[in-house]
Computed example of a mutant assay.
Amino acid sequence: MDLLSFAYPVYERYLTWQIAREFSNIPRHVAIILKETDLFDPEGIERLTSTLNIFRKFKVQIVSVYVDILKTDPALKAEVISTLKAKLEKNFSSLHAGTGYRIYGADGEVNSIAPGNDFLVYVSLGFGGRDEIMRAVLTILEEVKAGTVMPEEVDEKMLESHLLVNHEPDIMIRSGGQNLSDFLVWQSVYSELYFTDVNWKDVRKVDLLRAMRDYQKRKRRYGR
Rank of each mutant, 00 (worst) to 15 (best):
F92Q: 01
D38G: 09
S124Q: 01
D73E: 07
A146K: 11
I113L: 10
S93G: 07
F55D: 00
Y8L: 12
G129Y: 07
N199I: 14
D155R: 12
A114C: 12
Y11W: 01
T83V: 06
E89P: 07
D202A: 08
D207Y: 13
K77T: 04
K201E: 09
S124V: 00
V206A: 08
T51W: 03
E192V: 13
V60F: 13
F195Y: 15
K201R: 11
D38Q: 05
V185F: 15
L125V: 10
L180D: 14
N25Y: 11
T99S: 15
Y122S: 00
F119T: 06
R221Y: 05
P115G: 02
K57N: 07
D38T: 09
I173M: 10
I81M: 04
L4Q: 04
L3H: 03
L159W: 13
A97N: 04
P27F: 04
E160A: 13
I103V: 12
P27H: 04
R130K: 14
I113P: 00
D131M: 14
E192T: 12
K219G: 15
Q61R: 09
L88C: 12
D214W: 13
Y215I: 00
G177F: 14
E109P: 03
V30L: 04
G98H: 01
R102G: 05
V185P: 06
E168H: 14
T16F: 01
D170I: 12
K205N: 05
A86Y: 02
N199C: 04
W186I: 02
L125D: 09
D170A: 10
R56G: 11
K205W: 04
F195C: 03
T83C: 10
Y215P: 01
Q216L: 10
D38R: 04
T16I: 04
R224L: 03
F92I: 12
K205D: 03
D214Y: 14
E46S: 09
L88F: 11
H162C: 04
L39D: 14
D207L: 03
H167R: 11
S82G: 12
L180G: 06
A75N: 03
L159A: 03
P9T: 10
T99G: 06
G100I: 08
N53Q: 13
I133R: 01
T72Q: 10
T83H: 14
R102E: 15
S82T: 15
N25L: 11
T83W: 01
P169A: 10
T51M: 00
V198F: 09
D182T: 13
A31Q: 00
V110P: 06
M1W: 02
V123H: 09
W17D: 15
S93V: 04
S112A: 15
V10R: 08
I140C: 02
T72H: 10
D131K: 15
G44H: 08
M212S: 06
E143C: 03
E160Q: 14
W17C: 11
L52N: 07
V189P: 07
P27Y: 06
E43M: 09
R56M: 07
I133D: 00
R21D: 04
E143D: 10
T72R: 11
D68C: 07
E152F: 15
V149C: 10
A7F: 02
L84E: 06
F119Y: 15
M172A: 10
R220P: 08
E156N: 11
V154H: 11
P74V: 07
F55M: 08
E142C: 05
T196R: 00
T83Q: 15
